[in-house]
């Protein structure tokens, strides 16, 4: 029992649950809840992106595109023109994104390294341009308002209630990912990152696993897009844009690739940092860029894996 608790898997999950429960004691107002919610949203997307980047070794610089499709589908389908129920809209959007990801995954996942980065980046930018241009449907650059979320007659009201919704989603996704990583599929995934050729020789169907993870993480991004659209009550093309994609991948890499808790740490830092640097005014970008560079230069494996290694060495 205690051994199990001490395994990083269960231990980390419990620590996360504890943190989620304790945190609200420190919140003084809804703005703090709002920041926490943004962390949770980004963390959940980053975790799914991390499965792709960290474990399957596939770069995606276009994940915000999937997030945006989810958000906009929910906004449009639950809006006055269609009037769908939020849950149906969310699932349909996610399925549609899954199909889209499946269709493009064939040619895209054949690509390697920078070519793959370019292709996913292009895909994301095309999605963002469509969203900005088709203003009869999407409201264009000024955005679109979104109906509130109702699931089975329940509707989260206010930041404090939404906080629990997103925390449950976050914890569920951590649990899912940890299980996935420990499963045979997970071992196959790690093999893909390690050496694709070696994995193939050992009989792992690498294409199948890469496709599976790509589709799954795209669908996850779409779901989170839908949820966050309902939470904000407003969507703008920024959420589907290039910068958001870069932000998501930065969370993964900064926190630590192939580390579920690294993705969460990355999300925490990249969400809190801009809020803390506001006092610097003109110097904000300089400091932000510097922090990003220095962290990656001195901890190329990312924060969590580097610190964990140090920690273990210290204990031994």
């Amino acid at each position: 029992m205690f051994e199990k608790l001490n395994s990083p898997r269960t231990g980390g999950l419990l620590a996360l649950i504890l943190a989620v429960l304790i945190l609200p004691l420190f919140f003084q107002n809804t703005f703090h809840y709002d920041v926490a919610i943004h962390v949770a949203i980004s963390a959940t997307v980053a975790i799914s992106l991390n499965l792709l980047v960290g474990y399957a070794g596939q770069i995606s610089l276009g994940h915000a595109g999937f997030f945006g499709v989810g958000a906009y589908s929910s906004a449009i389908l639950t809006g006055w023109d269609f009037g769908w129920s939020p849950i149906t809209a969310m699932l349909v959007a996610s399925l549609a994104v899954g199909v889209l990801a499946l269709v493009v995954s064939g040619p895209i996942l054949r690509l390697k390294g920078h070519y793959l980065a370019m292709a996913t980046l292009g895909l994301g930018i095309i999605i963002a341009i469509v969203i900005t241009t088709e203003d009869w449907l999407t409201g264009g650059p000024d955005g679109l308002s979104v109906e509130p979320l109702t699931i089975f007659g329940l509707s989260p009201q206010g930041e404090a209630q939404w906080y629990w919704v997103f925390c449950v989603v976050l914890i569920a996704s951590v649990w899912l990912s940890l299980n996935l990583i420990d499963s045979p599929v997970g071992r196959a995934m790690r093999a893909v990152h390690g050496s694709e050729v070696a994995a193939q020789v050992a009989g792992v169907d690498t294409t199948y696993f890469k496709t599976l993870i790509f589709v799954m993480s795209a669908m996850f991004a779409s779901l989170m897009g839908s949820l966050s659209a309902h939470y904000s009550g407003f969507v703008t093309p920024d959420i589907a844009g290039f910068h958001h994609s870069i932000e998501l991948i930065t969370m993964v890499v900064l926190g630590g690739m192939a580390s579920v808790f690294g993705a969460i740490t990355g999300a925490v830092i990249l969400t809190l940092l801009p809020q803390m640097l506001t006092g610097l005014e003109d110097w904000e970008m300089v400091i932000f860029g510097l922090i990003l560079m220095l962290t990656m230069i001195f901890m190329p494996k990312g924060l969590v894996p580097t610190l964990l290694t140090k920690f273990r060495r210290g204990e031994a």
Partner: peptide, 16 residues
């Protein structure tokens, strides 16, 4: 470092 790590470093540099 990994391909993505260097990408993030150069992105950091461009922000700086």
């Amino acid at each position: 470092a990994d391909v993505v790590t260097i990408i993030i470093i150069t992105i950091g540099a461009s922000i700086l």
